[in-house]
Design a protein around this nucleic acid. Structure first.
Lengths: 216, 216
DNA sequence: GAGGCTAATGACAGCCACTGACAGTTGACA
DNA sequence: TGTCAACTGTCAGTGGCTGTCATTAGCCTC
């Protein structure tokens, strides 16, 4: 959605991209080092030697800058689902797309930040009420988009059959539980994330059944 | 949390409660009639003949006023889950608590608004990005609280066993899909809501299994 | 390579949500 | 009834965000 003009970069485009990336980098740096609320937009703009007004020309708001990194990986995830072979069962397609997404995370964000910074930013999101709210809303939008993809794959009408939305919503719920545990825990490795994701997905079935007390 | 002083109302308490309710009523009225964004806090305060500062003494922010009505019913839902007989399976307890919640919705909010107003407010929430975000965050908090309740019921550790959180998250996901369809559809009756809830809960299993194409 | 076109920017003014501080008012209670 | 504490209004200020307009700086043509 940003790199749709490969024919000729042009000095103008270059500068724009550069300003955008610098603003994003400055924002993420400030957010992760001193916190989201304690960082003002003026501060970010000043760090890049740009007017505050310009910041708002590149980002719809402070929130958007905070969620931009995550947005990159989410976009790739959606594409990943779309690219899955049609014969795969819905939930399996989602699972594979996520696992692949984790594996290729570093190359997705390399031009902006490191994986470590990505993780730190994630923690900021999770611990800042406004950001968490915005994050959840975006997740909801993503789920909606994916529900449409799945429905199309299976030849169903999203608005008539609740199963696509339900499946995606359940999947999203699992992902959120996983994210939280990931943030809270100590294992920051992508490998750990993959494992956690798999384990939680396998636990959905058991969780929905009764008697948790029997099999601990 | 508000009516924890039944012994002696006192003129002061009365006035406070009255101001609170009037502010809430005015806010909901303005939000539903002219929209959330197009309503300023000054407007709400003025409608009750109170300074803007006072509004912020009763509500943490504009958002809180917009979500207060919903908060009442959510609170009752959590209590409902807590009151469920211990022998019930987790998911069954949640289901019953929600269904009961819908049935007693009108008496829960009668002192503030009608069921119709409640529904209209819900639509405003769903169609206003900031409010939707805040709503989702609150839902997440609610889910966390309920996960703890369930874990305690079953004698588990919420942080060690992912099943309570997973079950609640899945349940929450179903509820959100239901809400959305409820808002979008034409059947505003509580009875319709009960049916929709049941139907969707029954569809979770099928949605998670593969081959949607076989059984439509 | 000079000049015109247009996109990008900066500077300024202003709205609105929200907060801290201080003073005035009004129930509560001896 | 007078004292205390709670509730409220006023004022000033911060920060996110937007509209407007003049200025700058790529780009493209002749």
């Amino acid at each position: 959605m940003e790199t749709t003009t490969p024919p000729r970069p042009g000095l103008r485009e270059m500068k724009k991209r550069r300003t955008h990336d610098e603003l994003l980098r400055a924002a993420v740096h400030l957010f992760t080092s001193q916190g989201y609320e304690r960082t003002t937009v003026d501060e970010i703009a000043e760090a890049v030697d740009v007017s505050q007004r310009t910041f708002f020309r590149y980002f719809a708001g402070k929130e958007e800058a905070a969620l931009a990194l995550e947005g990159i990986t989410v976009g790739r995830f959606v594409e990943g689902v779309r690219a899955r072979p049609a014969h795969e069962a819905p939930m399996e397609a989602l699972r594979q797309a996520v696992l692949e997404g984790w594996s290729s995370l570093s190359e997705a964000i390399e031009s902006i930040a490191s994986v470590e910074l990505y993780l730190r930013m994630y923690r900021v999101i999770e611990s800042t009420p406004v950001l968490l709210a915005a994050h959840l809303r975006r997740s909801a939008e993503t789920e909606d988009a994916i529900a449409r993809v799945l429905a199309e794959r299976e030849g169903l009408d999203v608005d008539a059959d609740p199963r696509p939305r339900l499946a995606v919503a359940v999947f999203g719920a699992v992902m959120r539980v996983t994210e939280r545990q990931w943030i809270t825990g100590e294992d920051y490795s992508l490998e750990g994330m993959r494992e956690l994701t798999s384990r939680h997905l396998d636990q959905v079935g058991p969780a929905l059944l009764g008697g948790w007390r029997d099999e601990a």
